[in-house]
């Protein structure tokens, strides 16, 4: 029995070490602040107030092309298809006229093949969009490309209906 306890201690020590780096994730929680202001009373009630009636951000307006954020690709390809060009142009113009706005270009791949190659493929996909935005006037410091490879699938099933959704670049504005 003593051995079991010892093993448990080792495991918990290991997990203590392991969980430490995760603390660095906390500062990333910017999302809440973009919501309506929270009540400042001493109440523990943190429900947001009714959103104030004001103009919706063009990035969030479902009628605005800027609310469209995903570029989809063919298998093993990082060529941007013509149907996405007007959407990317709109984001390029928005970034050029809103120099404080910043975007992450997140490349993704479907699950087939090498995980590492898929990270590289995701990078190429993100870069294909970043370069187009750059040509349209977005500044280098407004953009960062990252790749999740096949690690963060939007849809999970072993067939094309899911794979086609996962071969994608997402345009994500900072603070979203």
């Amino acid at each position: 029995m003593k051995r079991v306890y010892l093993s448990l201690i080792v495991v918990s020590l290991l997990s203590a070490c392991a969980s430490e780096p995760q603390k660095t994730q906390t500062p990333v929680q910017v999302e809440d602040r973009t919501q309506a202001p929270k009540t400042t009373t001493q109440s523990a009630d943190t429900r947001p107030l009714t959103p104030p009636v004001q103009s919706v951000s063009p990035l969030k307006d479902p009628n605005n092309v800027l609310s469209k954020r995903s570029v989809f690709y063919d298998y093993d390809s990082y060529d941007v298809k013509p149907e996405y060009k007007s959407m990317i142009e709109a984001h390029g113009q928005y970034l050029a006229s809103n120099p404080k706005a910043k975007v992450f270009l997140q490349g993704n791949a479907d699950e087939r093949g090498s995980r590492e190659y898929n990270i590289s493929l995701g990078t190429k996909r993100a870069e294909s969009v970043r370069k187009m935005l750059s040509v349209l006037g977005a500044k280098e410091e407004q953009m960062e490309s990252v790749s999740f490879g096949e690690e963060k699938p939007r849809a999970e099933c072993p067939e094309e209906s899911c794979w086609s959704q996962n071969r994608r670049t997402d345009i994500v504005y900072q603070g979203e």
């Binding site: 080792v10 495991v11 290991l14 997990s15 392991a18 969980s19 995980r115 999740f148 690690e151 963060k152």
Partner: peptide, 13 residues
């Protein structure tokens, strides 16, 4: 088997 690192984000390679 022992876990040497654990995360809610992916680990590879």
């Amino acid at each position: 088997a022992q876990t040497v690192f654990s995360s809610r984000e992916p680990i590879i390679s």
